[in-house]
Amino acid sequence: MCLAIPARVTRMLDDDCAIIELDGVQKEISLALVDDVAVGDYVIVHVGYALGKLDPAEAQKTLELVRAMSLVTDDTTPL
């Protein structure tokens, strides 16, 4: 459940609103549920509202962890 997409904030508007961009698609969303969002931040958008901010450092860490996981073969004892 809960279709939500990370998208980049490109412009701040009045009334706690902002324009987000996703590969050439622009949409107005509400920032009423989040604090301290700035242009350039990635937010998680659900039904036209930002639910939270995406942490780029953690995103990178997850990908590195994925890579590391695939390389681990020594410290496991199958069977």
Binding site: I5, P6, Y42, L63, V66, M69, S70, P78
Partner: peptide, 22 residues
């Protein structure tokens, strides 16, 4: 799509899948 496409990468998927099998 940044922060989306990286998490749909088939090559990375194969690596994790092999590790699961292991």
């Amino acid at each position: 799509m940044k922060y989306i496409d990286e998490y749909r990468d088939g090559v990375a998927a194969r690596g994790v899948a092999e590790q699961i099998i292991l």
